[in-house]
Structure formats: structure tokens, C-alpha cells
Design a protein around this nucleic acid. Sequence first.
RNA 1: GGUUCCGUAGCUCAGUUGGAUAGAGCAACAGCCUUCUAAGCUGUGGGUCGCGCGUUCGAAUCGCGCCGGAAUCACCA
Length: 593
Amino acid sequence: MTIESFLTNEFCKAIENLYSQTIDIKQVQIQKTKKDFNGDYTVNVFPFLKISRKSPEQTATEIGEFLKHNSKEINNFEVIKGFLNISFSNSFWINKLNETLLPIQTNTIDKKNILIEYSSPNTNKPLHLGHIRNNLLGHSLSEILKENGNKVTMVNLVNDRGIHICKSMLAWQKWGNNITPVEAIKKGDKLVGDFYVLFDKEYKKQISDLLSKGKTQKEAENEAPLILEAREMLQKWEAHDTEVLELWNKMNGWVYAGFEKTYNELGITFDKIYYESKTYGLGKDEVLKGVTTGALIKKEDNSICADLTSDGLDEKVLLRSDGTSVYMTQDIGTAIMRKNEFNADEMVYVVGNEQNYHFQVLKLVIKKLGYNWSDKISHLSYGMVELPEGKMKSREGTVVDADELIEEMYSTAKSISEELGKLDGIPENEKEEIIRMVGLGALKYFILKVDPKKNMVFNPKESIDFDGNTGPFIQYTHARIKSVIRKANEAGINIPKNISENTEINENEKSIIKLITDYNNIVFEASSELNPAIIANYTYSLVKEYNHFYHNCSILKEENSEIQSFRLLLSNSTAIKIKDSMKLLGINVPERM
RNA sequence: GGUUCCGUAGCUCAGUUGGAUAGAGCAACAGCCUUCUAAGCUGUGGGUCGCGCGUUCGAAUCGCGCCGGAAUCACCA
């Protein structure tokens, strides 16, 4: 039972006894007491004045007195205006701390089979900061959902086909002189990305050429020779033309090798990887089937659409007039395939908010096709990562490349630790490992501490901090605690298995216990909100509180042995919670730094 | 133009089942290492919570209207 529900019960009993009325537990609003006031939890008595027929102060005082005398866990209260601030006894808190040391029973009540899709890169350009946010969110959410006892399957869907891929293929064919990543001394994804950019450049030239010949913008875009060639290539691809397929396999192979390296650096993994090239066919079949059932309509130019006007949306094309598929087509196929394969209770898509419309349409079309599970699809719509001057633009070269950023994080971590001399005397390979941990920790925490739904700003000039509310600060606190524990071991001081409930504790220590006790609630909240930032903010407040304690109270030099062992245990428990929380964010913590 | 989202300190962000005096970090300034790791701790300054109206005991939080920004409304992905 949580502390909140325990307190709610006690409160209801008090109301019944004092005023002979039963109340709905939903009316009882419990919150943690604000720092400036005495108490652990606060109940607002305003909603109960009609029952008590007394002033707020009088009502709160009566209830407070009742609780204090009838509940052994509650030992004090204070009334300010209509707020009843309730304090639990120290022994109550010590018992709570002892409970956290018991083996954990995983919550199996809400256990679900959840499929989560994230990453979903295109194979025409390298990964950038926006993809990093996606990957980190997806990985962290998977960890959080697992921690809540769910069965989680992480999948990636690679967009490896489509007109965009043909563009880079065409450009390589025309101007590449058969160059390979090895010859270019470049990661494969980077090389392919270069050709995508080159296509765009040449295409734009042709468009402005046609514009000067009097064509409209739309005509120019549709009639430029390059785009016609790219479309032709896509048709050949869908017709399994051997030459096109060979080129496509070769270039995609380069890209996968490049992505693999970036995923490895970030610690991103998947249980299964889908390829759009293998799923779009099913989508096509489903769409054609939809025409025969009358769910979809075939136009006179042979294109196939879903009429969504009754849902307040427009018509959505699902197959082009030349018979080729669009992005939506494969997503329909993939969703159906997965549902059949995993029979998931929930299918979560981690995809940017620029695709909100896409998912609205996807759910509607799937429903139209006769599948009743369309409401099991949920879109974790995360915000864009922007620069101070706005969106990242590849044309202006302002895109923050994933590999370069990661590399920069390592070198910053390295120069900071060298400057501080923290890693002197540590073996070279361990040093290297710590530096990578800290650099990555800074990056990951920076991204994950922000509410996923919101857009966020990254300033390349200021880069990412290593002080204050950052990953390294949290990692540092963990290392500090570990250092104390090592010293305790050396001195032969043991960490106890539990604490006597009569141990004297101060306010500072009590605050830490409260935070440690709150861990399960926080994980549950993060899971139901699909929000890793909740974990990040929690960890920060725990660490902040611990450092305050560390500064004010000595541990190993404490003479009272009962207090000393309590403080050791408290420190150890804090370290465990830091490590657990950071794991949920995909961040490792070092033993020393 | 339609739809959706956002607007909190100079900057980056917390804070909404409506609650007490709106919080952190960075940046600036001033202190704290003969004492368990100073990537730390303490303090100072910094706010019309975009603006207005409403709902009520009470609004950063809910409703309506403006202003400003973003995304999207492709036979692109």
C-alpha cells in the first residue's frame, strides 16, 4: 500500500468518526508538504467544510487531533489556513526505508504486452540530433515500461525504399564514378547522404531552369528530368529490376554499416528490425482488398484513396496512379503484420510531432479496413530539436550530426577530467571507459530531462553542460557515494541489512528517505505518462538532496555507531536508486570519476 | 485559410487531477577545500507565468477572445 492511500484511509476514518458521514476517497486530495512548512503530507480540508459545518482551521485541527491520537504512525500536525500538514513519526520513515531493502515484487497487475517502435531512420542520410532524441526516448521508454512489469518488444522500421532512396541512387549512378565508402574514407551513411544532397542541388537547378522558361512552380517540380528519372527508377525497383536492386542493396549496405556504428555508440538495440521494402507489399494488398470491400475508393486515374471527409480530414492517396505505394501504404501493412505477429496489447510509435497528421490518418484507415484494434495504436509524439535560430537545415549546413556530436561529448569529457585531474592514476582503459560514460551521460541526460512532447533548443556554441542539473553531476554523486563505501569496507565497517526504528534522524536524512521511498511511484508515473523526463527530474532532486546531506553530515567520522551505520545504509540506498534511475534513462554510472 | 501544439528569470528548462510566498541549472557577483571526491556546497541579484476577460474561497494550471511562434494540411517520407 502506498503512503498516500494509507493516509487517505486514515483521513476517511477520521471524517466518519468526527462527523458521522462517509466520503468518497476521491475527494481527499493529498500532496507532499511544501518545503517551507512542517510536515510530510498535506490535506486540504476545504471540500469538507460542508460536512463539518465549521471553519477551515477548526475542521483541520479536529481532524489533525484525531489522526494524531488514533494512528500510531502519525505523530504531529500543523494547521495553516485550510491546510492540514501531517507528520509521520521517524520510526515510520525508517521502516519505509527498511522496506525498500527487501526483495522487490514486480508489479504484475497491469502487465501488458507492449510493442514499441522507435528510431525508424531513412537510408538516404546520416543520423542527426533529432534522431538521437528519438533513439534515446525509445530506449528509455522501453526500460521504463519493462521496469513496470510489462513485456516489451522493441522494433525498428527502416525506411529503405521509396522515391528518396532512388534520388541518392540516381545521383551516385550519374556522378559517383563508382566511389565506395572505403575509397572516400567516409562512413557509408555519410557518403550516401552526400549524394542525396547532390541530387537536390541538381534538381533545384533544373527547376529554376524550367521556371525561367515560363513553367509554373508545380509544373517545373514535376517535369524536371531528374525527378522523372527518379520516378522511373522507383517503378523499376517495384518491378524487381535486377540492376536497380543490385545498386539499392549495395548502397543500403553502406548505410546500415554506418548506422550500426552510431547505434553502438549510443547503446541502442532492437529485438527486431523491419524493412519497409519487405512490408509495403502487404500494405498494397490490404489497400486493394479495401477497394473490393468498398472501404476505399478507386479514382478514374487509377489512384486509390481513403475518403476521410466524414472525419473532418481530406482524401488520402494510398496508391499512386502509376500503382506505386506511398509511405502510408507500408505503415498500414506493417501495423497489420505486427498485430498478427505479436498480438500486442499496445503498439507505441515514437515518432516526431511533425507526423501527428500521419498517425491520425493511419488509425482511421486501419479502422476503415475493418480492424477493431486501431485504438491500441498510440503515437508518442515528441517535439523537434531546434537551434537558437530555428530549425536545422541541411541546405545551410546547420544540421547537428549525431557522430560528430557524440565525438565532441567525449573530447569535452576528456578535457574536463584532465583539467580536474580526477582520473590520474587510473588505468588507461578504465579511464577511457569513464570518459565515454560521462560524455554520453551528459548528452543523454540533456535530451531526456526535457518533456518529450515539447520542442527543445540545442545551442551548438554553448554545447552541453557538465555542471549543475546534468548527467555528470548525477554520475559524480554516485561515484562519491561509492568512494565512501569503499573506504568503509577498507575500515571494516559493514553496511547493515536494516536499521533500528529508534535511530535518530534529521530533516535532511528524512528528505532523502522520502525520495527513496517515492521511487516506485515515480517509475509508475513515468510509465503511464510515457515520459522519461519524470525520472530525470526525480533523480536530480534525489542527488541534490544527497549532496546537501553529504556536505552537512559526516559519515565515516560519525562517532555514534548507530547513526554511522544508518548513514552508510542511507548512502548505499541512494546510490542504488541513482543507478536504477539512470539505467531507465539508458545512462551508466561510474564507480569513480 | 483549416487543424494541432507551444508561450514561465538574460539563456535552457521544472512546476497543470485548480491550492500556501512560482522553482532549478547556466550566465553574473560574493563566500566555502590541513576534514568521507570542490564535476560539490552556501548566499545575492534577476518574474506583469504572452495580453485581456471569465469561472470560484483560490488560476501559471480550467473556459473564451486576442497577440506571437512552430508543425501539418503532397500521387514526399
